[in-house]
């Protein structure tokens, strides 16, 4: 565990908890894409199947359980909570998220390190995570005005990506044989998807204005 990895995990954790806390306290999920949240629930469910087969550390297992629990809680709130579900921007959140799932599954069947059930699902989760933010970014563009919490959520997620890339560079330099092309390329694609959002986020922060994305 290096400092970049820890910072990445903590911003990732903060992003999910900020979102869950927002939904729980103000009983509103306005501006949040259910499609993206469902994709993340699928990402965690397929990636963390190894909690049953391998043990790395208490930290690792605990974090996996928190990510699984919080992502499924968010989906539950948005779909079934009687107050929260009414605040969901159903008409605006129209991204066909299944069109992301199938190509990712196909790609994982074709490009992977080992052809085993767990390994293919693990690879699938990497590909899916790379694009899972897309419905959320589309929703942000459509509603244009973003409340602070939704902006912070995407900002923290982007921070998590940035720290993970630093973590990979660090591990590549310090650990022998640390080469993971699939993880790196998927991670890089994911980080690039945030670049556009970050540009507008910093612009609004610099001008001390409410974040507005161009149509």
């Amino acid at each position: 565990m290096n400092i970049f990895r820890l910072a990445g995990d903590m911003t990732h954790l903060a992003s999910v908890l900020v979102l869950l806390l927002k939904i729980h306290t103000i009983k509103s999920c306005a501006g949040v894409s259910l499609k993206t949240q469902e994709l993340y629930a699928i990402v965690f469910a397929t990636r963390y199947l190894d909690i049953f087969t391998s043990f790395y550390s208490i930290y690792n297992t605990l974090m996996k359980l928190i990510f699984l629990g919080s992502s499924f809680s968010i989906v539950w709130y948005m779909r079934y909570h009687k107050t929260v579900r009414r605040t969901y921007d159903r008409e605006q959140d129209t991204f066909r998220h299944w069109f992301l799932v199938l190509p990712c599954l196909l790609l994982a069947l074709l490009i992977h390190e080992k052809f085993t059930f767990l390994e293919v699902l693990w690879t699938f989760s990497l590909y899916l995570e790379a694009v899972a933010i897309l419905p959320q970014l589309v929703l942000l563009q459509r509603t244009r005005n973003i409340d602070n919490l939704t902006g912070q959520y995407v900002f923290l997620l982007g921070g998590y990506r940035g720290f993970y890339i630093l973590n990979w560079i660090y591990r590549y330099l310090t650990e022998p044989h640390f080469v993971h092309w699939i993880t790196w390329i998927a991670g890089l694609v994911q980080t690039l998807l945030y670049a556009d959002f970050f540009y507008y986020y910093f612009q609004s922060w610099k001008n001390n204005k409410k974040l507005q994305l161009p149509a």
Binding site: R5, H12, D50, Y56, N60, N167, H180
Partner: peptide, 10 residues
């Protein structure tokens, strides 16, 4: 040789 350590990340 392929390292398995990438799987220790979240």
């Amino acid at each position: 040789y392929k390292s398995e350590t990438g799987h220790d990340e979240l």
